[in-house]
Design a protein around this nucleic acid. Structure first.
Length: 220
DNA sequence: AAGTACCC
DNA sequence: ACAG
């Protein structure tokens, strides 16, 4: 039996989901996070207990619809002064919670599976989308260098991910994402615009009426 | 512009 | 469409 034929018949092993190409340097790993589901939810609970979710304000003075917190050495924050990475939670002046081991392990494994070995994330942004919450098309460009990929883990309610181009004017692709899906983009795709359509109301067995996204980056 | 407003 |  050839390796090709075997792969086509065998069920995917845990953590070895098929890589669905999105663009050069970008893939969707369907269900990749499912084997770590319980550990991820446990880590999420601990992070949110220590650094509460809050809706940040953009430089333009608007309150974001997505509630955010962070874990790891650095956290992404926004206020009237701008977007940046900070070592402490502005709400408590305490360092962000440590990145749970299950988070880091999953992010590193997903990056490697997507063709980015050696990913060493120092920042994990936790985004909570209640019904109607969205992110307009944007680029991740507050990191010091763009050599490392972005790893995005979807949990809870489904959502439509927008994946655009380097130019904001390029019409984005619409990618449905479900609980457990992981999107990775880097290399030539690192600076592509992306966003999330308004999340529809629903009820997820584990997360209830919300979507949670974990975004892993190398910020410094 | 990680946002909202307004027009069709 | 719109500005910082």
């Amino acid at each position: 039996m050839t390796p090709d034929l075997f792969e086509s018949v065998a069920p995917p092993l845990p953590g070895e989901a098929a890589a669905e190409p999105l663009a050069e340097g970008a893939v969707v790993l369907r269900g990749f996070a499912l084997p770590a589901e319980a550990a991820l939810l446990d880590g999420l609970q601990r992070v949110v207990a220590q650094a509460p979710l809050r809706r940040m304000v953009t430089p333009g003075g608007f309150t974001m619809s997505v509630a955010m917190t962070n874990c790891g050495a650095l956290g992404w924050v926004s206020d009237r002064r701008g977007y940046r990475y900070a070592p402490r939670d502005p709400g408590s002046a305490l360092p962000w919670p440590a990145m749970p081991q299950a988070f880091a392990r999953l992010a590193v494994a997903a990056a490697a599976r997507a063709g980015f070995p050696g990913f060493a994330p120092d920042a994990c942004l936790v985004n909570r989308y209640e019904p109607g919450a969205r992110l307009t098309l944007h680029q991740d460009r507050n990191e010091r260098d763009f050599g490392a990929p972005i790893v995005s883990v979807s949990l809870g309610l489904p959502a439509v991910f927008l994946f655009g181009g380097r130019e904001r004017s390029e019409r984005p692709r619409r990618i449905p994402l479900a609980h457990g899906d992981v999107v990775v983009w880097g290399g030539p795709a690192r600076l592509r615009h992306h966003g999330v359509m308004p999340v529809k109301s629903g009820d997820h067995p584990l997360l209830g009426g919300c979507r949670v996204n974990l975004t892993f980056r190398r910020a410094a």
